[in-house]
Every structure is written in structure tokens, then in C-alpha cells.
Write a protein that binds this DNA or RNA. Structure first.
Lengths: 134, 134
DNA sequence: GGTGGCTACTTACCGATGGAGAGTTGCCAG
DNA sequence: CTGGCAACTCTCCATCGGTAAGTAGCCACC
């Protein structure tokens, strides 16, 4: 009884502040620690292989890299191409949809870089206050 | 014995792609599911009380709301004011630093709203492919 | 022809994190 | 002295993330 077919357009009726809304899950997924970094890397370096990504995202485990890439692929943000060579070569790159996320994501990373010092200062101030008041 | 890690130099040398870099943790914190929503709510509604936030962010547990607000307060993004009344009234609002995050965060939420349909379509396509090959 | 090596994963195990919900504190009305 | 409100705080349990070892397919080397 509803006209659901016009969804391709604007923000329609999604609301991340409502429990159970898919947009909340999506926000969680793209705001994920490793997703942000993987998308950022693929955005800057273009097509990359599995081991390249693992090296550049220092500290990520193979399990999490696989898991993150799979999730991004499933959501249409990353394209995975398997070259049947020996040994196997698998390449990852952003889809057009994935590229549209670069802007928003860059906004986040730039903010964290720009305001890092202020946040660290706030933490020290908070800790100092905590020590005084007990 | 003050073990204060004086992170001396300026903001320019942070790199979230490096393990152990504080900017990676910060990115993780502000990209956190509940942090995004709490900051978004405080940005839109201005000063809010604990129970107001809990109602608006439907689905958040009290534990996570407290935890998220504490972390945001510690990082200097949210100001917490206790009014010694009966019953106690606690109000939360964004700090000036917190306000600077609204833009980047809005970028993310708007992206997820705008591209929700495409992502859902990609998931269905992925599942269909998985059924064929698997 | 068995061994080792390469790439891209999987799997097993375990400590940390998140969700549900009951308990706590302080104070005042009844 | 019991009940109720606001803002937590605590406990239990399921899921998640990290570590590290194992797997599969194929080929070069011995």
C-alpha cells in the first residue's frame, strides 16, 4: 500500500536514529575502523592486492582484512577481481559508489588529524580534574 | 612519577595508517556507531538530558549511553553539566570543538541516507551471485 | 616425486567489547 | 519508612577482534 519504488532518489524515509533502520547498520559499517582505512587506501593508491593492503594498513590481521573487504564488496563499495594465475592474484579497487564515499571519509580523517592536539589536551585536562576531585 | 606522554610535535606528523598512532584511535572513536548518533543528536537538538538522549537514540542501552558520553566528554567534544536539584538534572551539549565535528559527521550520515538504496541493491546482487555459484 | 614456497585466505582459541536488565544513590512526598 | 524519580552502575552472557597456525592450488627445485 506504499509507493516504495521511488527509493532510488533522495534520502526517502530512512532514519539512523531509529532502531532497526538499515541506515543505522550502514552508518556503523562505513564508520568502522578498518573500513575507513581500507577505503582510504584504495582511494589513494587505486587498485591494490591483498598483501599490499595488509602492509600499508599496518596492524590489521588477515582475518579482519578479508572480513572487511568482503563486507565492502557485498555492499558494492569495492570490486574484487581474481586473476587465475600462478600464484593467484587478487586485486581490489573502489567501485564508482565507493568513490562517492571518499569525500565524506576524507572529511573525517582530516578532522581527526587537524584536531588531534586539542583532543589530547582535553584528555589531559580531564585526567587532571579527575585526580583533583578523586 | 609523572608518566605523561608528551606528544610534542605539531599535528602534521600523525598518520592513521600507522599502527599505534593516536590518530587511528581517535578516528575509531569518532567513527563509532553510538558516538556518531550522540553527536548528531546533540548537534541538532542542542542541550539534552540523559533520558532525552536515550529516548531519541532508540535502542541504545544505558550503559553504552553513559560510556559514550563519558568518552566524548573526556575528549573535549561534549560538555556535561550537573544541576544539584532534586531529582538531579544532568545536561549534555556540544563544546566548540564538538561543533567542528558536525560537518564531517553530517557528510557521513547524508551519504548513508543518499546511497542506502544502492547498497541494498548491491547486497541483493551479491547474494544472488552467491546462490548461483555456491 | 617429494619438498618447499608463493598467495590468499580459513579456522581455532581467547580475551575484550556490547547488549539486556536489575540494582544503587540521593532526596523528598506521602 | 515506603515509593518514586533521575542518572547512573553492575552483572551476566553473546558476539567481536586479535593472534597464530593451518589450508589449497600450483610450480620450481632437488
Amino acid at each position: 500500500m506504499t509507493t516504495v519504488e521511488t527509493v532510488t532518489d533522495a534520502t526517502s524515509s530512512w532514519d539512523p536514529y531509529e532502531r532497526g533502520c538499515p541506515s543505522r547498520d550502514l552508518l556503523d559499517r562505513i564508520g568502522d575502523k578498518w573500513s575507513i582505512l581500507v577505503l582510504g587506501e584504495l582511494g589513494e593508491h587505486g587498485t591494490s592486492r591483498f598483501t599490499e593492503l595488509r602492509k600499508r594498513l599496518s596492524g590489521i590481521s588477515e582475518k579482519m582484512l578479508t572480513q572487511t573487504l568482503r563486507a565492502l564488496e557485498r555492499d558494492g563499495l569495492v570490486l574484487r577481481t581474481v586473476h587465475a594465475e600462478v600464484p593467484v592474484r587478487v586485486e581490489y579497487e573502489l567501485t564508482p559508489l565507493g568513490h562517492t564515499l571518499r569525500g565524506p571519509l576524507r572529511g573525517l580523517t582530516e578532522w581527526s588529524l587537524r584536531h588531534m592536539a586539542e583532543v589530547l589536551a582535553a584528555r589531559e585536562a580531564y585526567n587532571a580534574r579527575a585526580e583533583q576531585t578523586g
